[in-house]
Design a protein around this nucleic acid. Structure first.
Lengths: 187, 187
DNA sequence: TACGATACGGAGGACCCCGCCGTTTAGCAA
DNA sequence: TTGCTAAACGGCGGGGTCCTCCGTATCGTA
């Protein structure tokens, strides 16, 4: 039931995805689908057959990375220092989404299409941090009312506002650090 | 030297701007220039003549609001509680840019065009908070290394990541609050 | 009133997204 | 091996946007 696709279909899928990765990396989330098709050597209809809508393409492009992030979160699930683990993971997410063009846009986009799409990147990420966040919260080391969604939102926000910077990863990490410790935590 | 424009030119400028405000409010930063021209009853070339580039249009659309924000900052310059003044102002900026469609996008965009454009919205805003921030910093009530640009960046980030939300202003303010006090301030 | 500079807007080219539909091709079965 | 059928392909046309050029209409003045 898994792969009943025809061989050429699978081949094209792979070629398109490969080209899409490069194009998105080069031109961000609104890379030209037409161009992707041209470079991949297929008709534009084929692109949209495999990926109905730009969002689907972006999701596929970042899928691997997202899953590796989720796996990492699982690995950190019972680290000695829960807070350090959470911050470490958030730092990784920030650096990646700030420097990988299109990633942050994809994250914010996929929230306003289908609220509860399981395939959605943001949902996966939220699920991944949930356990980490809970542990830290139980230690009382997190501000009250903070949800996993909040963390993802803050990170994507930082990434979006940082993409233009000359060194997005470093700048993103710095700003993340600031929001973690507080810009003006006094009192 | 101020207004050597022809009367019809000024008239068209005003009409276009008025329509642009509505269109941007309705469709965000990437409203159709073509459409704006059509609704305003002018040729698309005329829009471009008055506003070379989408960025110029957006700047004009938000100009008034930006200046009123700057004025407010000046009024708060010597409030009794410097920190409260800064936070109050940041809250206002956040609420506005989170709920006014296109504003946040305009802010992040205008940074990557011309680094040191005096007309740029973000530059104006940074100049406006600078004094407020300095006062708070002198009291030691702000994390070390925080610049005015950082604050604008964080706020636009929050706004960008929050625009999709059902109540962007409230959500934005909540996240700002989190950022100010720190998500996990423990140490 | 007549004239020159200024501003206008239509036309056309390049690009993009999208859906339709006739054609090719892979993979199975005889 | 050879047919056959369903799956997959891709060209084409329509609708949209952005942008530039250039002939024309209009304003303000002499």
């Amino acid at each position: 039931m898994a792969d009943q696709q025809r061989a050429d279909a699978r081949r094209n899928y792979a070629r398109i995805l490969a080209v899409a990765e490069q194009e998105v990396a080069a031109h961000g989330a609104d890379a030209s689908l037409e161009r992707i098709a041209r470079v991949a050597g297929v008709g534009s209809a084929t692109v949209r057959r495999h990926f109905p809508g730009r969002q689907a393409l972006l999701e596929a492009v970042f899928r691997e990375r997202i899953e590796s992030l989720c796996a990492r979160a699982e690995a950190l699930a019972d680290a000695a220092d829960a807070r350090a683990a959470l911050l470490d993971w958030l730092g990784g997410l920030t650096e990646y989404s700030a420097s990988a063009r299109g990633m942050a846009e994809a994250l914010v986009q996929d929230r306003l299409v289908e609220p509860e799409q399981v395939s959605a990147c943001s949902v996966k990420l939220e699920g991944a941090i949930e356990p980490l966040l809970r542990r830290v919260a139980e230690q009382g080391a997190v501000a009250p009312g903070v949800t996993a969604a909040d963390l993802v939102t803050l990170v994507t926000g930082i990434a979006l506002a940082t993409e233009h910077h000359s060194d997005p990863a470093a700048e993103g990490r710095r700003l993340l650090d600031l929001t973690v410790r507080g810009v003006s935590p006094s009192h």
